[in-house]
Design a protein around this nucleic acid. Sequence first.
DNA 1: CCAAAAGTGTTGGGGGTACACCCATGT
DNA 2: ACATGGGTGTACCCCCAACACTTTTGG
Lengths: 227, 227
Amino acid sequence: MYTPSDFPPFAVTVDLVVLTVRADALCALLVRRGEAPFRGRWALPGGFVQVAESVDAAAARELVEETGVSGLFLEQLATYGEPRRDPRMRVVSVAYLALAPDLPVPVAGSDAASAAWVPVSEVSSLAFDHSRILADGVERARAKLEYTGLGTEFCGVEFTVAELRRVYEIVWGVGLDPRNFHRKVTGVEGFLVPTGGSTSRDGGRPAALYRRGDVGVLSPPLVRSSA
Amino acid sequence: MYTPSDFPPFAVTVDLVVLTVRADALCALLVRRGEAPFRGRWALPGGFVQVAESVDAAAARELVEETGVSGLFLEQLATYGEPRRDPRMRVVSVAYLALAPDLPVPVAGSDAASAAWVPVSEVSSLAFDHSRILADGVERARAKLEYTGLGTEFCGVEFTVAELRRVYEIVWGVGLDPRNFHRKVTGVEGFLVPTGGSTSRDGGRPAALYRRGDVGVLSPPLVRSSA
DNA sequence: CCAAAAGTGTTGGGGGTACACCCATGT
DNA sequence: ACATGGGTGTACCCCCAACACTTTTGG
């Protein structure tokens, strides 16, 4: 029974919530739309899933196209499927969350001229239901920083404990005790790998440099408590 | 530019991971397929999203059709979109996790005759990629029990602390200290609401009866530690 | 020498585990 | 009386927030 009514036609897209920490703020990658609907409005980067590729692969492809960098953290966030979320046709969108370090070039994609990093606190109303998707992504990122080692995804290949701490403080919007934070992150087995090098780029006594470890979940988790 | 190649046609379905606790086991609701492909194999209940309904609404509709009960906990799990997951055509499926109490009738849906509660430990290979979806759902349920009050979703409207503890022990597969568990769950503000009644259906001294509270996240969380 | 930032040591309190102990019912 | 499970009290332990203190650089 392959009656057409059983298989209503859908378009499937991926939308990306790409977050980074730069200029003391949590920023999202946004593109300015060049076509109707919502022409001229900010939106999340994304695009249609091709026939032969998986949805995950489509998200990875779009991420490389938009950031020019591969190997970034990328995970599925949620799927948004309200009937009228796109006024043109029935579109179901699978949203992904990506975390990126402070990339040198804002964007090097196909729509390079119209893309920018925007602090999430300054984002007003986006096209479609992208405001809600962005909010969901930010909340997911905040939560994941507590019990996974993903804070390092916001840093470069080598970083100091203080730089990592700034990431947590900015993403969570809280102050953290530098001494206890240092003890905590260096104490978790496999979280940070010392490179042997050190730097004094932050002033004061030189700080040891670390690379990202391969830990998945942190135990015990970091907790966002003090103000 | 509405070229057809930009909008490859997809079918969108919802698949349900419906879990319950019965007969000292964590069980999933499965249906036996009556048509090809995978005719005769067990599969997750689900169906096509209709043109005018949201994806979430489709999941809720299917859940009522399959269980005969409304108001159950239901949340999005993940979306599965490999190109060849359905041999007939390109299907993207949005999976949902639902938690149900031990329902009196196994199933009262359209395919009632071919549905059953199956202990997850005895589930072998399901149709499509449903084995993986089920595994993801079970893992999500186990995790959610730690930091939310969702364990009560497996109980009836009124339940004792011991009955709730059995739920946690079965879902997690561990033993829990009855005294500490009692202190913990009754100590979390808003988790359990005493009804004033009591029952001795479990034998021994009568136990106080509780209703589900309206707490979202548990702090401190319950932890699955001891064996 | 002084400021600034990196690390280390110490202490006190909260919460969790383990377990002894009492309570209330059925048989 | 005794078995069975409900519920409370308590001691110990570990973790962690708070903060004093030392270390190492730049100016």
